[in-house]
Computed example of a mutant assay.
Amino acid sequence: MLSHVHLGISDFPRAFAFYTAVMKALGFPLRFCEPDKAWAGWMPSAAPRPLFLIGRPYDGGAASAGNGQMVALLAPNRATVDETHAAALHAGGLCEGRPGPRPHYHADYYGAYFRDPDGNKICVCCHDPE
């Protein structure tokens, strides 16, 4: 359904270090990194899309997190949700919801929430039974 998601960032080295830790925990390899253009992208290892991109806003303005905006990244299992949340917090993210079941979404939903150093809200979730 999605081709790519782009999150605006204000400090490329800081954001790249943060998302390198998050994507490593999820097992998503780096597709490209262009520090001189202040952007980078990761993708699933088994497919060329979707891409998860970070970079400065195209219009040159300040990056800002959207109210009500969230990107949810799919984890292959619950342990990866736990590991990714821990990696995000260790890399400077802020907790927005500890890993755990969220039965109000559906019976097998297991997720965790955090904010990146620029305030973007990220979810990591698994939809499979334990």
Rank of each mutant, 00 (worst) to 15 (best):
V124Y: 12
G27Y: 07
A46D: 11
G61E: 13
P50W: 03
W39C: 07
W42E: 07
P44I: 02
G60Y: 10
F52L: 12
L53H: 14
Y58G: 02
G60E: 09
G41I: 02
F114H: 01
M1D: 13
G61S: 14
I9H: 04
G61R: 08
S3L: 13
W39F: 15
F18P: 04
M1N: 15
C95V: 02
A86R: 15
A91T: 08
S3Y: 15
F52Q: 07
P101R: 13
M43I: 13
G61Y: 04
I9Y: 01
P44G: 04
R78C: 05
P13V: 04
K121H: 10
W39S: 04
D128H: 03
E83S: 11
P50V: 12
C125I: 12
K121A: 06
D11Y: 04
P35N: 08
R115Q: 09
R49T: 11
P76H: 12
L2V: 08
R49G: 07
K24T: 07
H106V: 10
G27I: 01
A75E: 14
D59K: 14
A75P: 06
I122F: 06
L89T: 00
T80E: 01
L26H: 02
G111K: 07
F18V: 03
S3G: 15
W42K: 02
V81Q: 07
P129M: 03
R78Q: 09
G41L: 05
H90A: 10
T20E: 02
G8S: 13
W39Q: 09
Q69D: 13
L94A: 08
F12V: 00
G8D: 09
Y58P: 00
G55A: 10
N67Y: 12
M23V: 00
D116L: 02
P35A: 10
R102T: 10
G92I: 01
R78V: 11
G66T: 14
A88T: 00
R49V: 05
D82Q: 03
V5M: 14
S64H: 13
H104S: 14
L73M: 05
Y113F: 10
F32T: 10
F114W: 09
D11K: 02
S10K: 06
P103A: 15
T20D: 02
A63L: 00
P35D: 12
P99E: 05
G27Q: 07
D108K: 03
R98Y: 04
H127A: 07
R14S: 02
A65I: 06
D108E: 14
F28V: 00
E130D: 12
V71P: 05
D128C: 07
S64K: 15
A88R: 04
D36E: 14
H6R: 12
A87V: 08
A46S: 12
Y19H: 03
D36L: 11
A25C: 03
R49M: 11
H104M: 13
R78N: 06
I122P: 03
A65E: 01
L89N: 00
S3R: 11
